[in-house]
Amino acid sequence: MLEIKNLRASVEGNEILKGVNLRVREGEVHAIMGPNGSGKSTFANVIAGREEYQVTAGEVRYRDVDLLELSPEERACEGIFLAFQYPVAIPGISNAYFLRSSLNAIRNYRGEDEVDAFDFLKLIREKMKLIGIDEKLLNRSVNVGFSGGEKKRNEILQMAVLDPRLAILDETDSGLDIDALRTVAEGVNQIRSADRAIIVVTHYQRLLDHIIPDFVHVLFDGRIVESGGKELALRLEKEGYGWLEKGEETVSSATSPEEPR
């Protein structure tokens, strides 16, 4: 489904991804772990098509198309979904309007009929119940005044409604208490299926207690330096990322102050 070869990307002239290779097949759940500043969020945003990130080399094939040629909206319509690390607040646009616009944009792209307000409400109420989101949030402006947990649940709700083929969760566990973490994980597990792939980007192992990955990759200084099964996550949890730095010449790059969003 997704095949990434030697992907390099920069932000404002600083190279963040320095040759990432990754292959994701239908039905698989991959976890990408790594310390702050290793390039996790850059990776997620490059796949979603954020234009501040310049791809300088490499190739990304997604379902037999050149993903890098597609605009962010085309990628979404082709089934890629990024759950944001920092969901954006949009005053004046209600959650319902936002989601219906998104859903209909995707349906239009796929040559399907738009959903009307009635069917949409039916669909979204069902999904909200599943994910445990208060229905009141439907008529509130997108993420305006939402708590951290509500924002992340809202991302999962969008994911459930938009029904992606490839979902990327960027630090969706950050800032969540244990209950919220569990509902978010349940939401993800519910959409797990044989024809869908999921990439979970996370700093901590704890989300992976609830979403069991098929593969775990360690991203360090812009490269995937280690890949393995779920037991790799446990090792990282126990030993931290420190062992990766040994033998690395550019330790400072792994502890750069702020991970670009």
């Binding site: 962010p72 979404a76 319509c77 990024l82 954006v88 949009i90 969008q158």
Partner: peptide, 18 residues
């Protein structure tokens, strides 16, 4: 704008919505 685009809404429509 990017948030809306990442959900499938094209850029002109995203601007219009905002």
């Amino acid at each position: 704008i990017f948030y809306l685009r990442s959900r499938g809404v094209n850029e002109p429509l995203a601007r219009k919505m905002l």
